[in-house]
Nucleic acid binder design. Structure first.
Length: 554
RNA sequence: GCGCCCGUAGCUCAGCGGAUUAGAGUACUUGGCUUCGAACCAAGGGGUCGCAGGUUCGAAUCCUGCCGGGCGCGCCA
């Protein structure tokens, strides 16, 4: 409806003033109407007339052109044109489908990116929740989405963990791993990583030993060694990590199509960087670097003087592997914002030899999850908030409030808290208070859904087609009709928070309607039931895109 | 030092390809359950949109400069 009206308005403008001017409709406050445009103000400069005069002329023509679809057109303020839809037009928008503007496109969505041998912290929870919602929005827009996950199963952090694990086991004794209970594996490895890091930072002799171990781990991959005692320990612990990740994602309700372990992207990255050393990358102090300064960026090392690929080369390999696997139209990469400049350098280097890969890559970033008080969480120091701690805090808060620990509600509360703010900056998470489950929250939306389902269950009918609305009904219908426009915007901008804001307004509008309008037993029951059905389905669909469940009862 | 991001109500945040009266939530004050679920609804107080200039008929929104905070800047990821 919106696009059609915009088209009609642009045609009217052209017919009256002989000007090609794109017309953009916005959703104004309800008192002004259903749609508004400031096109008269934009035209004023171009055709040298007063905005209100232009608006009057345009409105006159539109009243005839839009007959049937629009019931009222008014001019307000400096020259806004406010449109009010006819009830029949509005009723027709109640069950609209979002546009499939990415139909036929292939998108690779990479997010979460935890490292094996390390613990999942609150930041991983955040990026997993946001990444999943963005992938859902892309799918809703018609794209074929491949969710992938990148992680460092090789590298210094692994060497640090392995160094400590060997000491825990009393040497290279893989059989001793059997003594670690399954439930404790993830914590046990996380503790080893922390010990290894502390030893590394304390200096020699551990530092040299860990560096040697790092080379050995790369070598293990090069040789395809799965049999030596050292390799057995490595592969077993690595698998424990992936099991731990999978369990966590299952709990969140997200699922990855593929993991790209760094051990698999490193060889291709190394080979690619070597291949372009000379024309794109340059040798410097025994390392291979990309001179980003030429492009207003900074210089970074892609292969270190040990001959090992750094994160940079592994990322080059990753992007190339994704391309080989999917030939994507767009590659969305979601990470923390601390690597914005880093990513620019990597993409700029790739642009030099395969420009389409850089062009099709879109780096979205988010800030860190902070504890109230400004504490940064660092898994290196061991004083951080784990992902499971966040979920536990939400469950605990919910139990205190309603006497039961409902996973769907606790998870919905956490997801919504993360999704409702615009992605980019840091988010403040207060384990004690931010999951209070009140106000603009996931549980509020879930409750607003359950209330509607409760009415429908009681009525046992889905109402009848709507012809006209009373004021309260119309407000709800108007809000429901915005759904497809919001989805289009959220998907186009890859910003789920737009959807959150809208769903909250939708639920609020419904709760207001619920308060003032009896449904079951009222003489307008049929109309109102039809509205409640449309509302419940819309809210459920929206929450679904956010990865939040819509229980019928709670 | 250079680069990127951020600064809106006590707190947490929307709004930022300019435009109808700066909005939510929370906290605070007050009212509403014999009627479809009160995890709800209604009303109220609370803002020099960091500061100063500039562009514009019109700036929280665009430009410049400051101030304050965060992050990044060669062998970590």
């Amino acid at each position: 409806m919106k696009a059609e009206l915009e088209q009609s308005l642009a045609e009217a403008v052209k017919a009256l003033f002989a000007v090609d001017q794109a017309v953009e409709l916005t959703r104004p406050e309800e008192q002004f109407g259903d749609y508004a445009t400031n096109v008269a103000l934009q035209l004023a400069g171009q055709i040298g007339k007063k905005p209100r005069e232009i608006a009057e002329t345009l409105a006159e023509k539109l009243r005839a052109d839009l007959e049937g679809r629009v019931s009222d057109i008014s001019i307000a303020g400096p020259g806004f044109i406010n449109l009010r839809l006819s009830d029949t037009a509005l009723a027709g928008m109640l069950r609209g489908e979002p546009a499939k503007f990415l139909q036929g496109k292939t998108v690779v969505a990479e997010y979460s990116d935890p490292n094996p041998f390390k613990v999942l912290h609150a930041g991983h929870l955040y990026t997993s929740v946001v990444g999943d919602a963005i992938a859902n929005l892309l799918e809703q827009a018609g794209a074929t989405v491949h969710r992938v996950n990148f992680g460092g199963d090789v590298g210094l952090h692994v060497a640090k963990a392995m160094w400590a694990i060997e000491r825990e086991l009393g040497g290279e004794v893989p059989a001793k791993l059997d003594e670690i209970p399954e439930a404790e594996r993830a914590d046990w490895m996380a503790a080893a990583y922390v010990k290894g890091t502390q030893a590394y930072e304390a200096g020699e002799p551990a530092q040299a030993e860990i560096i040697a171990l790092n080379k050995r781990i790369y070598q293990l991959h090069t040789d395809g060694d799965h049999d030596s005692p050292f390799a057995q320990i490595y592969w077993t612990c690595r698998q424990w990590s992936y099991d731990y990740f999978d369990a966590f994602y299952a709990r969140l309700g997200t699922k990855f199509e593929k993991y790209y372990p760094e051990s698999q992207t490193a060889p291709l990255g190394l080979q690619t960087v070597r291949q372009h050393t000379g024309d794109v990358y340059t040798e410097s102090d025994g390392a291979v670097v990309f001179d980003g300064e030429k492009y207003g960026l900074h210089t970074r090392v892609f292969i270190n003087s040990e001959g090992l690929p750094t994160y940079e080369a592994k990322d080059v390999g990753l992007i190339m592997k994704k391309w080989q696997d999917y030939h994507f139209d767009t590659s969305v990469i979601i990470t923390g914002n601390d690597i914005i400049e880093y990513m620019k350098v990597v993409l700029k280097s790739i642009e030099q030899f395969q420009p389409e890969l850089a062009e099709r890559s879109r780096h979205l970033t988010h800030g860190i999850v902070k504890l109230a008080g400004g504490t940064k969480m660092s898994s290196r120091k061991g004083n951080f908030l784990r992902a499971v701690d966040v979920l536990a805090a939400a469950g605990e808060a919910n139990r205190r409030l309603v006497g039961q620990d409902n996973q769907q509600i606790a998870l919905g509360a956490v997801k919504y808290a993360f999704l409702k703010v615009r992605m980019g900056g840091d988010i403040i998470y207060d384990p004690e208070e931010s999951v209070s489950l009140e106000g603009n929250s996931g549980p509020y939306l879930q409750y607003a859904h359950a209330r509607a389902r409760s009415i429908l269950a009681k009525a046992g009918s889905e109402g009848a087609p709507v012809q006209d609305f009373e004021a309260g009904e119309r407000s709800l219908a108007r809000k429901i009709s915005e759904y497809t426009e919001v989805i289009d915007k959220a998907a186009a901008e890859l910003m789920p928070h737009h959807l959150c804001g809208y769903l909250y307004e939708l639920a609020q509008t419904f709760n207001r309607f619920y308060e003032h309008n009896r449904v079951v037993g009222d003489e307008r029951q049929d109309v109102r039931l039809a509205l409640v059905v449309a509302y419940a389905e819309t809210l459920k669909a929206g929450l679904g895109l956010l990865g939040i469940a819509s229980p019928d009862k709670m």
